[in-house]
Design a binder for these strands. Structure first.
Lengths: 349, 349
DNA sequence: TGGCGACTCTGTATCGATTCAGAGCACGAG
DNA sequence: CTCGTGCTCTGAATCGATACAGAGTCGCCA
């Protein structure tokens, strides 16, 4: 009545009186045997309750599993919550979906897992890394497996295959826009700093996305302004990014002299800054200009609508997915960005 | 210089001059060999470029892969876009993340894939099905593999292990609320109908989530009102759910006599209905009452704030994940719902 | 009649690891 | 001196399938 273990292909072969190869062919190469025999095999399989070739065994023999992994190094909820991440993953998932490939959300890299066991143990055909390059060393554990690997937005990564955007040019353009409008007291609402507390030999690194900060600095220095006149405040990781932005915005706006313009590293942060301004009855853009980055739906829905740097997030996901599927080993793709001027920027008061 | 294929555990064993078992133990059971030998083995592995035990081979031998699958039967983008889905998946992913398990987003079940090959071929330890029960037959292909399997919100499913909510009670309470307020001309903004065009022998089924419709009917009939006085409009699948809701709302509001209250099957649809009302300068709640379902963040952010049926979405995800991890084969969990009255409902004009 | 190709089907090696029972050895207790 | 015990390490079997080379049969054509 109740068999401990599932029948295998060999059981079916025995039942029908054919070789294992033939049963395998019945599933994988219908043209290699007569329709008649095939039907007999399939019927026997049905009888025995054989669920078809085991995916893992097949994966071992074939050398591919039909799964690609995604590593993400921020609080997991952001992947579903942060509009930029959502758009990116949507692009990614759509292409994989069409290709019949599964997308495995790998567990976060853990501070207490310096060997990146998770990456070494993931049964995948390839990997998309959607996190800061600071994890290069851990990701090496994966690269050693010689599987296709695409890094997305990996600032300083040396990975062979990557897709990214012109972060630096983006914030540079945004900052120049503000300076051109006449702003001189600038502030930056930056991403949180990365935490490596638990990792020996890994000093605290700078803020996330140094290239975006670099672009701001470029524009500031291009204009002959002193970089240290720029206030840089980093977000924390409590709650949503927007909430964090509101706190950062608060810290920026409570300084004196109060900055007249804020460059935020993402639209969520920018929206939070606008929230903070509203909290303080500071008018945007009359008393404060704010620029964002990403051009997610958030940017169009803030009041006032956000001036921001557009990046093709869905396309970025699609590109990454396609690179992985095509197995292009050494492609380096940089997608363009574009400043979109809306209503959140104006000359300073 | 360049070897065609990666070294295997056997190569390492040969290099060090020990048995394969010992190398395996070096990775999996450090206490089974002397620290000294272990270090020697690990060093040799490093030298040879051996990336550690192959996950697929290990999976085959061990019988588990560390991956669970998620099937979703709506346009994939909804998983990241629809707030209710987002909350659910967040709960799911959080628990798996903590457990060190990967969550594989399986490709959508395809109309042209009646054998559910995707499900039969997924190399997973278990499956969460987040789709309508109408796919029972296809999911049977998975169940045959005797792996843990949890159905979420699977209306009419007969699956052994499921978690859901009291859909029927929820819409019933919401509808009763409207009727108590005095509404008599009710309309329903329903989910899209399922499409089975391509599948022989599968007639078009009713709308998604019949239980929610059933609850509405319950309340209507409890009140002694004729069911066929209730207008039921189904959404389509173009664009976002909210956009679809706006179109459905338009169709409802353009009828005459115009209904005075709308029961929407989700907050997104409800928000869309409110959008449609605004398009037509119909005041909510003065001229039109709207109730939603889910109590996602959307509900609090519409203007006016939405009266809705709260369901514990994150908890639903967590519960499903935990059931799967615990391998509870026959649990049936029904989470409670609760009517939350806000500002979108009032007596009819 | 011989030869060739098409069609079916088979046997064995292989994918890369883990498991399990047990062998060899050293050491302390009795 | 012997036995039991603990520590290391080994060998063979096994997980469940697919690849590859080839064997047998049959019909067709020269």
């Amino acid at each position: 009545m109740f068999s401990m273990s599932l029948p295998t292909l060999a059981d079916v072969a025995r039942a029908v009186g054919v070789s294992r190869t033939t049963v395998s062919n019945a599933y994988n190469r219908p043209d290699q045997l007569s329709k008649q025999l095939r039907d007999r095999i399939l019927a026997a399989a049905e009888d025995l309750g054989y669920p078809g070739p085991d995916p893992v065994a097949r994966g071992l023999r074939r050398g591919r599993t039909g799964v690609v992994g995604l590593v993400y190094d921020e609080p997991l909820s952001y992947m579903f919550t942060d509009p930029a991440a959502v758009l990116f993953v949507t692009g990614l998932a759509t292409v994989f979906d069409d290709a019949g490939t599964s997308l495995a959300l790998l567990p976060r890299l853990r501070v207490d897992d310096p060997d990146a066991g998770v990456l070494a143990e993931a049964a995948v055909d390839g990997l998309v890394s959607f996190c800061e390059a600071s994890d290069d060393e851990r990701i090496a554990a994966f690269v050693a497996r010689r599987l296709p690997f695409v890094t997305v937005d990996g600032g300083s990564t040396r990975a062979a295959c990557r897709v990214g955007i012109d972060d630096r040019g983006g914030t540079r353009a945004a900052t120049r826009h503000l300076i051109t409008l006449g702003h001189r007291r600038l502030a930056v609402a930056a991403f949180p700093r990365h935490h490596h507390e638990g990792r020996p030999g890994r000093p605290e690194r700078g803020a996330l996305r140094p290239a975006r900060l670099g672009g701001i600095r470029d524009a500031v220095e291009d204009a002959g302004l002193p970089w240290d006149s720029v206030v840089v405040e980093s977000a924390d990781e409590e709650g949503t990014r927007r909430e964090a932005g509101r706190r950062v915005g608060g810290r920026i706006l409570d300084r004196s002299p109060r900055p007249t313009a804020v460059v935020a590293m993402s639209d969520e942060l920018a929206a939070g800054v606008i929230d903070a301004a509203r909290d303080r009855a500071i008018s945007v853009p009359d008393e404060l200009s704010v620029v964002g980055f990403d051009d997610t739906p958030t940017a169009a829905s803030t009041a006032p609508a956000l001036t921001t740097v557009h990046q093709p997030l869905v396309a970025k996901g699609e590109t990454a997915a396609r690179l992985l599927l095509d197995g292009a080993p050494d492609a380096v793709v940089e997608l363009p960005v574009e400043l979109v001027v809306r209503e959140s920027t104006a000359p300073p008061p």
